[in-house]
């Protein structure tokens, strides 16, 4: 029962231990304590998806989880997934299709898209749109993002 707690976790494949304030959410921890500024804050009330990170294999709202809750967890951010090459085809498709403008939503969008690909099958544009609907993009109008994800599905799962 403390305001400061020691935690140990794995972030982007590397062990990390810190003492954190109980009230600090996961994305503030990643950004401010670890310098992983690729995850962004767009609303801090769980609607926009800019803070999306992967915890124990599933995407979560990084602003709706406390850092202390990630004690023992396996956390991945856009930086780690970029280094590992795990989303390289998605990133290339986003770039080729210009599926990003200001780029603020992009890390969260990519992580959500990566989870969509976990289904292991091609989806219709309607399905892709529904899956993306927890991630705001204010710049692109979504069309190009749907195109980019569809392209990767086609490449990974066949035409």
């Amino acid at each position: 029962m403390q305001e400061f707690i020691d935690i140990a976790l794995t972030v982007n494949g590397e062990p990390v231990s810190r003492r954190v304030e109980a009230r600090q959410h996961l994305v503030d921890f990643l950004r401010n304590e670890l310098g992983l500024t690729g995850s962004h804050l767009g609303c801090e009330h769980g609607v926009c998806g800019a803070c999306t990170v992967r915890v124990d294999g599933a995407v979560v709202r990084g602003c709706l989880m406390l850092a202390v809750q990630a004690d023992g967890a396996d956390v991945w951010t856009v930086e780690g997934l970029s280094d590992s090459g795990g989303i390289a085809d998605l990133q290339e498709a986003f770039i080729a299709r210009n599926a990003l403008q200001c780029g603020y939503c992009t890390p969260g969008m990519l992580l959500t898209a990566a989870e969509m690909l976990e289904a292991g099958r091609r989806m219709t544009r309607t399905e892709i749109r529904a899956f993306l609907s927890g991630n705001f993009c204010r710049c692109t109008g979504y069309h190009a993002i749907v195109d980019a994800i569809g392209t990767v599905m086609e490449r990974r799962f066949g035409g």
Binding site: G38, I95, G103
Partner: peptide, 11 residues
């Protein structure tokens, strides 16, 4: 775009 898509944007 590449920089931003790799989470290396600096806002």
């Amino acid at each position: 775009a590449r920089r931003l898509a790799f989470g290396r944007g600096t806002y």
